[in-house]
Design a protein around this nucleic acid. Structure first.
Lengths: 209, 209
DNA sequence: CAGTTGGCTGACCAATTGGTTATCATCCTG
DNA sequence: CAGGATGATAACCAATTGGTCAGCCAACTG
């Protein structure tokens, strides 16, 4: 019933409009009428196609997630290639993905878990092969690693402003803060163990209670 | 007797309720009536005190920011509960702060800039004193550092879920991922320069175009 | 050609929203 | 006790929201 190209056009237009608006303002802050207006259709048509606002949101989720998961002929997430591709993908999609993670939809949560899982295996392999350092808590490290890669999605606006780049999703800004991130991932920030020992002290004091 | 917060002035009760709800769902997704209900007052009183929803939001911003800046908050002194109230408020305040950064209010932006600025100077000093590694792009590094520290505010829900801790703002979860973060900040993740050289390759290829 | 189907719409609906106003209940203070 | 301030509310309002419905219209299909 929906394999026709004729209806896919309208559906796609609405979905793209929703993607942009939801990503920019958050789903709760955008009315169906706003989406419809941007897609150049009546708001009733949005309901006609997606049943409800929630239905539209889910379809956006599914679409974006499929983009992240499925590159051209790529199998499931074996490494962070999908994520890396995602970070280079189009602005609206990125923005939407960031929102989805922040708003904590079940689908986004599942994707997050998947990415962390893959990253943990990837880093484990790296440790075995010698190009990654061992960790005292590999799972937590993988989780933090992923979270940090995602961070610019949430705070990209501030990041670009601080770096003096007008567009939060400008490629040059992305490249620049990527470099800084990789620098930290490669050599760290601190030259000694003072932060680590400070953490130990906090934990010890907390345990004492 | 009415409730545990019965002693607090209505104004503070409303502000605290708004803090919790706005932080949890985002300001646009929470109605004034919901705030009023949580504070145990009529929704008209919210308007009476704060003029408008935007006024309430700004007051929340100002309050949270004053807490972050560490200065003696005006209302903080009125809350006789002292430290206990402070710790209890810590969770909601953190959540709210994360939302404020994500939603990009002007006040939050200014605070962000301030923090990055201070961090950059701090790291610069660290480099001079030898406990921080030099960076090729100190400003970008400071921005990324701050952004990464803030990341758990945005993705704390996923982080705690992946670590198997029920409450996203549980102290133990915070402690655990903090440790992983400090580990990275201290020693990095990668044992060689392959990520760095890969980045260089990407930049070069991009420049060629 | 008649008829069915499905994309598409305007008009409508009940519920909810942020905001206003008139009013009431205190509580000081003169 | 009079009489403002101040705190708080119920009733109301216009606008907007997500969702429904009957029906238009173009394209297939018999």
């Amino acid at each position: 019933m929906r394999s026709d190209k004729g209806d896919l056009k309208a559906r796609a237009r609405i979905r793209n409009a929703a993607l942009e608006l939801f990503g920019a303002e958050g789903a709760t802050g955008v009315s169906l009428r706003a989406v419809a207006a941007r897609a150049g259709v009546s708001h009733a048509l949005v309901l006609h196609h997606f049943g409800s606002k929630e239905g539209l949101r889910k379809e956006c989720d599914a679409y974006v997630i499929s983009l992240v998961r499925g590159g051209p002929g790529v199998e499931a997430l074996e490494d962070t290639a999908g994520l890396a591709a995602m970070l280079e993908a189009a602005g609206p999609v990125r923005r939407y993905l960031g929102r989805a993670f922040m708003d904590g939809t079940p689908e986004a949560a599942a994707l997050y878990d998947e990415i962390v899982e893959a990253t943990e295996r990837w880093l484990e392999q790296g440790v075995a092969e010698g190009w990654a350092r061992p960790s005292q808590d590999p799972r937590a490290r993988a989780a933090i690693y992923v979270t940090w890669l995602l961070a610019p999605l949430a705070f990209g606006e501030h990041l670009s402003r601080v770096l003096g780049v007008p567009d939060p999703h400008d490629m040059d800004a992305t490249l620049r803060h990527s470099r800084a991130g990789i620098e930290i991932f490669t050599g760290g920030v601190f030259a000694d163990d003072r932060a680590l020992t400070a953490w130990e002290a906090v934990r010890k004091e907390r345990r004492a209670r």
